[in-house]
Structure formats: structure tokens, C-alpha cells
Write a protein that binds this DNA or RNA. Structure first.
Lengths: 208, 208
DNA sequence: TCCCCGGTCAATCGAAAGTTGGATTCCGGC
DNA sequence: GCCGGAATCCAACTTTCGATTGACCGGGGA
């Protein structure tokens, strides 16, 4: 049987070396490339046609892991993409899953788990870390809120500590308008103050 | 010449494998142990007596990297500790340096940089990532602010979105007291609103 | 010892923030 | 076409926040 062809995507050389070391010591697994950025990952997917891509979500500057994942699975006859990351915030997970990832693992997973996840992904199965699965479940139950572009913009400025007046000046509207947007934000997030809105928006990954 | 004895400390198996792979391929370097926690690191330092410890700052549950570093350098004839981490917030850096770290590198550093940093540390030199050095410099110039325990507690609650009244209830004090603390926080951070205080405290790593 | 600092509280006042209600525009569906 | 909904905008009103001043207590360090 031909070995499974694997592409590693991570902006940290140390992590790439670690994945390579953990995977190449296994029979039937072949690391055919390493990419340090999303752009490079796309090139290597086209050139090497791997079976499985191990993808970090945070890739420093440029395209992030979720975007790169989406671009990869949009290709004809795409490889499976398994996300392997340190972060487990709701939004990160949701974005990765929406982008079409076949798995979501945390970097503190056991090497065994990692290897079996790669195999499972190659068979078309979906592999989720238990914590991650639980978060996803919670998220699906609670209705998805999304703020309009304007609202997000304003909450971001609030989070930076600007007053309504300062925000109004920044966006060339009146203070009343800023307040009005904030009222809508408050109701969408189920809070009743700017600080709580920032906390809620941050928790749901709507800002930052 | 006897090889340099190195101990790896990181809670992520992948990262440990990566460091091991990058270091063991070099002449004169010998990885003598791996620890997944601060407690384990202390044991292994005592048992293996390494020359250099590569230490992650975030170690999951239990003792964090800064504490572990401090405990290690407090030993008789201690090894050099080089911090190797993903995070580069001001507080992390400062805590590591204060704990007695001989170096501070980011995980996106080149393997070459990593290797030469290990050698430099073994010779007693201090190795700082340029970004890190710059942050340290900025930090030293701007007078160090630190909030009292009570003040930090209150800012954290503000960051969670609580009103003064709610904070007062939470801490069993009156609203006047909360306001009084916030006045001090505002003046220490150079801001004039609760949201700006949260932003400033977050930026300086005083909360979260 | 005395003084300073951290934590506690009170009263007041002006300035933000938050509430209510309403206007306009744009867009997709019946 | 017409309607409903959502996004953006605005103004007047009420509440909370923040500034200011002043006070009390307890625990260290000079």
C-alpha cells in the first residue's frame, strides 16, 4: 500500500519539526512538504497533492488557517484538512469547521491521537477533540448572533476604550448614532453596558 | 569536549518533539530529558543536571514557566534557562526576565537562532529576540505601573462587564469603595473611563 | 514612634452612558 | 408594486459613572 502523503502547515519551525518527527517515525506516513504560510500551503497542495494537510490556525501575517483551509477544500479532489492548533476559542473552532476542516485537534494532544486522527481523516472520518466537540455543541444550541459591520466597528472602538463622543468623531456621525448602534449591540448580545458588550463580543470572537 | 546537556520543558508533545528534532541533529547537543510540567521540570533538573533548560511559559495547569524558571535558577549551580514561547506580551517577558531567564525566544524563530541561543546561554550570555528586547526597553522607559491586588480584582470584574453596583455586591463593599478604587486605577493607567482602563490593563498584561 | 499607603466609606455635581422613540434608505419576498 | 425587516442615522430624556473632597482604620517601613 502506498504511504499516506502529508503536508504540514505551521508558521513555527519548531512545531513543524515536531510534527514531522512524530509522523515520519510511523509506518505508512510520509511527510511530503512543509509550509510556513497559507499561500505557501496552497502552492504545495497543488504541487505535491497530499492526502492529508495538518493545518495551524494562526499563521502569523497573511492568510490565516481557516482561509487557507477553505481555499484548499475548494480545490478539485481536495486533501483532507486536519486543524492542529493551540487555541480552542469558540470562533476559531467554528471558523475551521465552517471552512471544511475534517478534524480539530489541540497541540497538547498525545502523539497517538494525532497519528490516528490523520488516518481517520484519510478515511473521510471527522475527528474532534472532546473539548472541541463540546464547545461546538454548546455553540449550536445558542443562536448564532452576528453584528453588522457598523456595529462591529463601533464595539471594536469601545473595546479600545474610546468614549461615544470620540467614536462619533472617528466615524463622522453624531453621538446619538453611536448610542443607537450600541443599543442594538446590547440587545443582540443580551447585555446592558458597553463593558459587558466588549466582554461578550470578545468571548464570542466577534472582535479581536 | 562533552556535549551540552539540554532539558526540554513544554506541555505540548508536538513542540517537545520539534525541539528535540531540531537540537539532536546538531553536534555537541544532547537532549537529556523532557518535562511536560513545571513540577516535572524541577525533578528532572535535579536528576539530570542539564546545562541548559528550554522552557515554555505556558504549561497548562499547575506551575507556570516563570515560576518554574525562578525555582530552577534558585538551585545551587543552576542550569541556564532559555524561555521559548509563543507569547510576547510585556508582562510575560518581564516575568521571565525577572525570574532569571538567560534568554527569551519566540517559537517562530529560525532553528539556527534557537541553536545559537542555546550555545550562547551555556556560555552565560543573554539572548533576546529583537522584538522582545524592544519591548523590554519600552517597558523600562515607561514607569512600571502595578495595581494593588484589590485594584486588579476590580478591573477584572469591570472587564467582565459588571457595573459598579454589581462589583460592590460581589466584593461585599459599597459602591463608593468601588469608585474609589477605580479612581486610583484610572490615574495609574492614565485613562478616564472604565472601558479605557480595561483596554490599558489588558495591553499591559495586568489582567487576563 | 510616626507617617504613609491600601482599603474602606460618604456627599455632591457635572458629564458620560443608556433608554425611548422616531426617521430614512435599501433589499428581498409575496 | 408593496410590504417587512434590517441597517443606519438622529434627538430628548433618565440613570449611571467619574471627579472631587474629605474622612477613618490598620499595618508596615523610615
Amino acid at each position: 500500500m502506498t504511504p499516506l502523503r502529508i503536508l504540514l502547515v505551521d508558521d513555527h519551525p519548531v512545531v513543524r519539526a515536531g510534527m514531522r518527527a512524530l509522523l515520519t517515525s510511523r509506518d505508512g506516513l510520509d511527510v511530503v512538504g512543509e509550509a510556513a504560510s497559507g499561500e505557501q500551503a496552497l502552492d504545495l497542495v497543488a504541487a505535491e497533492r497530499p492526502d492529508v494537510v495538518l493545518m495551524d490556525l494562526r499563521l502569523g501575517a497573511g492568510m490565516d488557517g481557516a482561509k487557507a483551509t477553505a481555499a484548499i477544500v475548494a480545490r478539485p479532489d481536495p486533501p483532507r484538512v486536519v486543524v492542529l492548533t493551540t487555541y480552542d476559542t469558540d470562533t476559531d473552532i467554528l471558523r475551521a469547521v465552517e471552512a471544511g476542516a475534517s478534524g480539530y485537534l489541540l497541540k497538547d494532544s498525545d502523539p497517538e491521537v494525532l497519528v490516528s486522527a490523520v488516518w481517520a481523516a484519510s478515511r473521510g472520518e471527522t475527528v474532534l477533540n472532546p473539548d472541541v466537540a463540546q464547545r461546538l455543541y454548546r455553540r449550536i444550541r445558542s443562536p448564532r448572533v452576528d453584528l453588522s459591520a457598523r456595529e462591529t466597528e463601533i464595539v471594536s472602538l469601545v473595546a479600545r476604550g474610546l468614549s461615544n463622543r470620540a467614536i462619533a468623531k472617528e466615524l463622522f456621525v453624531t453621538e446619538a448614532t453611536v448610542k443607537s448602534h450600541l443599543v442594538h449591540v446590547f440587545s443582540k448580545l443580551g447585555v446592558d453596558s458597553r463593558t459587558a458588550a466588549v466582554a461578550a463580543a470578545r468571548e464570542r470572537g466577534l472582535i479581536d
